[in-house]
Design a protein around this nucleic acid. Structure first.
Lengths: 108, 108
DNA sequence: CGTGTAAGGAATTCTGACACG
DNA sequence: CGTGTAAGGAATTCTGACACG
């Protein structure tokens, strides 16, 4: 009754001020990393940015990498790679599933 | 690297406006249930209420019970019962652990 | 490139109170 | 008892810009 396995991790409910407290970053920094397409907050009706816990984690990793001298463009490339990799995985899975379906459809 | 098992469910990071959206309740209602000691938000430095996902779930249950005609005083009693029950459990566990410790200490 | 800051406006949140019932 | 509302102030958030480098 009180525990649904909805992933609260991805729910965008945290406002920028709270994200600042959680990450130690400034609003300026957080908005800049958004501009560089490293994070993707949602917007409330009024237009206020809303972040998830997942975003907060991502921001802390970004902050570390930046401190180490990495540039946002490089971080952006990393992100693209991760995404294309999981995209390829998805494609592979879809293909296999297609083969399985074809197989079973023949037998039905 | 990106998944820590911290319970985000209990982290107080959601502001009252967002809680309104998530629960469908008014700010007035949410503050009133706090006054009746049914929920316990934290406060930011400035004094703004911060809620957890757990609070949001609790509020939705409260809202249901209220709709069914239950009063906040009754809900408060329910809460006391739940808490005293888990308190009793904790006491029992502590006692058993004490016996175990006593047992092993003797043998050392 | 990454970040600080002052600027001005619009929405947010807070509290205590009047109101109905 | 539970909730709506107008009131006034204080903090929040937003955007675009100037700045340094």
């Amino acid at each position: 009754m009180s525990s649904k396995a909805e992933s609260y991790i991805y729910k965008k409910v945290i406002s920028i001020g709270t994200v600042c407290e959680l990450t130690g970053l400034s609003e300026r920094q957080i908005r800049y990393y958004e501009k560089r397409k490293l994070i993707f907050p949602e917007r409330s009706e009024r237009g206020n940015r809303k972040y998830s816990f997942s975003d907060v984690e991502a921001l802390m990793e970004i902050a570390n990498k930046i401190e180490e001298g990495m540039q946002t463009s490089e971080l952006r490339k990393e992100l693209n790679m991760k995404q294309s990799t999981s995209y390829e995985h998805a494609v592979k899975e879809t293909m296999i599933r297609g083969q399985l379906n074809a197989y079973f459809n023949k037998r039905q």
